[in-house]
């Protein structure tokens, strides 16, 4: 059978979907193991060797728990909340280039599901929609703590989206494209955007922490103030969806950070030893996932290192530090890019 492009795309979509879910599942295990490591504990070790089956046990527990929908809640929106959270989390994977093209039987198959020429904007749009799941869930629960958690989450995400967008603008200025494929390809040979845009990279990573509602920005589910935040009223797998969406977001954020700033699937020095394009593509995927794994580890590392911010500190950091810094970054980038023209203007 000839592997037609459409069949290849379908297989790719299924693979990306499956891998996203698998990575998110094992991120829960990794989180507990890394927390244990950082706190000098052993961590889960009962289910299977080294506790490797722990995520399965957790999933079974989640599914078997009694499902409760509060009678005073808005039933449809209550169900829509976690569904939207998981949907928007899964939607971002399609524009990420997971590797170079595979060549099978003389045909080239791109390892990116779709190369939109507005890829960054698509990503940004989906991220900006991610807040609806939390807001709707928090409101529909008809609980003060849930509402406060949902409102906190949404104002936090809106605030940090601004700084995130501004930090991407500087990246777009230097790369000159909105397509993630071109951005990844342009970083070939160690020309990582991290070295060109270190400040933008830092701002983007901080904003990614805030957008995924991860510690130190997890005020939406601040236990000491809000019980469970927006998912206080949720039980069973609906709660599982919210928690799962967070891990998917973490995975996708790591993938986006790796693609934008750390070379994506490009790998140092391997091109000198390996020449077969298919092996290069496979190695590219391996390197991409190594970078993503480090990104996920970094997310967890920070969570167990830095305590939670206070809410006013969070807002001050977002509006008074990150946004001016990212605007400064844009100006400096622009001046640097136009330096010859500016010099020519003053030095006649």
């Amino acid at each position: 059978m000839v592997l037609t492009p459409i069949i290849f795309k379908i297989i790719l979509v299924l693979c990306v979907f499956g891998i996203t879910l698998l990575v998110a599942t094992y991120s829960t295990y990794a989180e507990r193991k890394i927390a244990a490591f950082l706190q000098d504990r052993i961590g889960p070790d009962r289910a299977g060797p080294f506790g490797i089956l722990q995520p399965l046990a957790d999933a079974v527990k989640m599914f078997m728990k009694e499902e409760m929908i509060p009678t005073v809640s808005n039933k449809w929106l209550f169900i829509l909340g976690p569904a939207l959270a998981l949907l928007t989390a899964c939607m971002t994977g399609v524009v990420i280039p997971w590797g170079k093209s595979l060549i099978i039987g003389g045909h080239e198959y791109s390892l990116q599901i779709t190369d939109l020429n507005i890829g960054i904007l698509y990503l940004f749009g989906v991220v900006s929609l991610g807040v609806y799941g939390i807001m709707i869930g928090g409101w529909a629960s008809n609980n003060k703590y849930s509402l406060l958690g949902g409102i906190r989450a949404s104002s936090q995400m809106i605030s940090y989206e601004v700084a995130m967008g501004l930090s991407i603008i500087a990246l777009v200025m230097t790369t000159g494209t909105l397509s993630l494929k071109d951005i990844a390809a342009a970083q070939h040979g160690g020309h990582w955007n991290f070295f060109i845009q270190p400040l933008g990279c830092l701002i983007f990573i901080i904003c990614a922490f805030a957008e995924t509602n991860r510690a130190p920005f997890d005020l939406a589910e601040c236990e000491t103030e809000l019980i469970g935040g927006y998912h206080t009223e949720y039980s069973s797998m609906k709660l599982g969806f919210f928690l799962f969406a967070e891990y998917i977001n973490m995975f996708i954020s790591s993938a986006v950070i790796a693609t934008f700033y750390f070379g994506g699937y490009n790998m140092p020095f391997v091109g000198r030893f390996v020449h077969d394009p298919n092996w290069l593509a496979v190695l590219g995927i391996v390197f991409m996932f190594a970078k993503i794994s480090f990104g996920i580890f970094f997310f967890m590392w920070v969570r167990w290192t830095i305590p939670r911010f206070r809410y006013d500190q969070l807002m001050n950091l977002g509006w008074k530090v990150l946004i001016p810094l990212s605007i400064l970054n844009i100006v400096v980038t622009g001046v640097f890019m136009m330096r010859h023209e500016i010099m020519a203007y003053f030095v006649k």
Partner: peptide
């Protein structure tokens, strides 16, 4: 992503 979130 932004204006309707503020409305909400």
């Amino acid at each position: 992503g932004a204006i309707m979130v503020l409305f909400l």
